[in-house]
Write a protein that binds this DNA or RNA. Structure first.
Length: 377
DNA sequence: ATGTGC
């Protein structure tokens, strides 16, 4: 079972599927994540797997990989179908942002979106009442809406360091969850594309992908409105989705679509995020890491960080002089910077293995996670 | 991850 190829240029066989790892021996990768990688590679129908340095264990398989198969495995996409990162430019100069004023205004993101969003759903070909009350809400877990500054950027990016940017990480909320729930028993063994269950899944999955993308757009619009700014979307990069790939099906799980432009690689709330240019590496399956990746699982975080009042207050500030709006104590702890790998180390491994390279670095100023009253946020 | 489970 030798699958120790680390340079992204060669591959090793494990079971049926060929695994290519886009990380070096310096990467923080849990043994359990690599076990999951090998298990998946051994599933009947799996042909190729690309694994990225943000790899970490997940419920049905590792997060941070792209899996090419001759059939459809709905569980490899998971419940948050269409989840991804979108990057927006605000027409707001950095020098105009007053953190203490902007922070309370961002609270609007913790409230349900306006009821009048049927036309937005219709505009992307979705039923006007499809999970309409959740539209424009970021959800829980690792989701966020972040105001960023440009620390460094290549000219080719067209980024303007005097402006503010928004990075939104969110997905399809209850919709994607309902889609995974609706899959018939037995589907986890793999669906052939010419069966009714596969056709139903593909249709529902497509809806969830469109819903999630619209959701990120509306979240950004709400944040921009709170900051009294206009916005332009620069990147929309989903990382949990299924796509046709040649004759097969490409399952991206925490692996960003990297064959249609730059890809955001999110750091923790207290570290840099990067904009990556993927190198069209033949074995990377048109994908790239989507973020720093989890270092420690949620439950173990409660034993790893102190949570006195002063500690909690400290976690609401960042080394960049930024602020974190997260009034859920457990979430604040579970998403502490310690819970994540180094985004810089992840980016460097992508560069060393030829999967992609950094074209810009962003630093967070304001991170919106959750308000106390926003029970449905 | 989840208009949130025991």
């Amino acid at each position: 079972m030798g699958n120790s190829v680390l340079d992204g240029r060669a591959s090793a066989v494990s079971g049926d599927g060929v695994i290519t790892k886009f990380y070096t021996s310096t990467a923080w990768i849990e043994g359990r994540a690599e076990q999951q990688l090998e298990e998946i590679a051994g599933w009947t129908g799996v042909q190729r797997v690309a694994a990225f340095p943000d790899l970490h264990p997940g419920k049905y398989g590792p997060v941070g990989c792209a899996v090419l198969a001759d059939r459809i495995f709905p569980q490899l996409i998971g419940n948050d179908i269409g989840c991804g990162m979108s990057l927006f430019q605000l027409d707001l100069p950095v020098r105009k942002l007053k953190l203490e004023k902007a922070l309370p205004r961002m609270r609007i993101l913790g409230e349900p979106g306006s009821e009048d969003q049927g036309w937005r759903l219709e505009s992307v070909g979705l039923p006007t009442d499809m999970f309409a009350t959740s539209l424009g809400t970021i959800g829980g877990g690792n989701h966020f809406c972040e105001v960023q500054t440009v620390a460094e950027a290549e000219g080719s990016t067209g980024l303007d360091a005097s402006r503010l940017y928004l990075l939104v990480h969110s997905g399809s909320r209850g919709l994607g969850n309902a889609v995974l729930d609706s899959v018939p028993p037995g589907a986890y063994a793999g669906l052939q594309e010419d069966c009714d269950a596969a056709r139903a899944y593909l249709k529902d999955h497509g809806n969830a992908v469109r819903w999630a993308s619209l959701n990120r757009q509306i979240i950004a619009e709400r944040a921009a409105e709170a900051l009294r700014a206009d916005l332009t979307r620069l990147v929309d990069a989903p990382h949990n989705l299924l796509a046709r790939h040649g004759e097969g099906w490409l399952h991206r799980k925490g692996a960003a679509v990297a064959d249609r432009g730059f890809v955001p690689l999110a750091g923790s709330r207290a570290s840099a995020s990067f904009l990556m240019d993927a190198s069209s590496h033949g074995d990377a399956l048109g994908s790239l890491a989507h973020g720093a990746g989890r270092r420690y699982d949620r439950s173990s975080m409660h034993g790893r960080v102190r949570a006195k009042r002063s500690d909690i207050e400290g976690m609401q500030r960042t080394p960049f002089g930024g602020r974190v709006l997260c009034e859920d104590r457990d979430l604040l702890i579970e998403e502490a910077p310690l819970a994540y790998k180094s985004s810089k180390a992840v980016a460097e491994d992508l560069e060393r293995t030829g999967a992609g390279h950094r074209v810009a670095e962003f630093h967070p100023l304001l991170t919106f996670k959750k308000t106390r009253d926003g029970r449905r946020s």
